[in-house]
Amino acid sequence: MPATPRKRARACARAGPRILAALLTLLPGVSALAYEVDSFEARAAAYVDDAACLECHEEYAASTTVHRDLEEFETAAVVTRGCQSCHGPGSLHVESNDPDDIRNPATADPVVANRACLQCHRADDVGAFEMSLHAAADVSCVSCHDIHGPQRGALLRSSQPDLCVSCHQDQRASMYLPSHHPVREGRMTCTDCHDPHGSTPSAASAGRPNDLCLSCHARHAGPFVFEHSPVIEDCTICHAPHGSVANSLLVQNEPFLCLQCHQAHFHATIPGIDGEFTSLDGYSAVSTHDASKRGFLTKCTQCHTEIHGSDLPSQSISGQGAALTR
């Protein structure tokens, strides 16, 4: 069975650079739409020595937070170092002691709070956070991260999955269904699959369909000689990733899942004898009048074992080898 590689035009390969070029052309126009967010920088405040901050906020003097001692190259040279890198220039606040005279990300508008973080973390993987569903829902960086905390883990306020399911309660319920990914057992985390910092199509997710699932379940990556088209289309047509009652995270049990798209097996309606029998090859079994239903309508994958795809042909010529039984 020789391969016949298709040498179709790589139009999409050329489209990418064209889109990026168009983006650069549009920038001056769309920039006029923007609204200036942070008014603190516009005030007449000036940066002061951090020691002035710690005179009152002595609880942070012994803090081990990594945010205290950053080098200039780490901050992309857009901010000063220390307390005021996030809180903005503090001279007015030092003079007045008025909380309104300094930026406080914990109580500020989420956009302002996030900007304080992203001015440095723009260069990280979290750079797309402002486009994320979390940001749109006014979940700010400090909702999940304890910025003054010690440099442990990702400065999360609590560990996964507790932190995530404190809001996503329906997913916590799914984790307790009989079939589930090992999240509540601590063998996986929510962020193994989800990117809390950005759900707009990113460089990673814009690749092959289902690539997120295949990054662990690589045995199903193929591409196979004999395909099962819903496997290619979307894993979630058949699987519920957060948990299900049916085995293997199936959205419903076999054969009902399969019968939504497929005909019941043609042997299933043929009546059987009531009694024991032995085949020519010496296999003995007991049949009943409705045994064909039990045999052919219990679990399709007992015979169609390679439901995710296979390179090996099935036995029947009339099925053209594509029945995914081998």
Partner: peptide, 14 residues
């Protein structure tokens, strides 16, 4: 861009 505005573009070949 100025005023809390960001544009991102990406190209991926797999």
């Amino acid at each position: 861009l100025s005023g809390s505005q960001t544009v991102r573009g990406s190209y991926v070949r797999t």
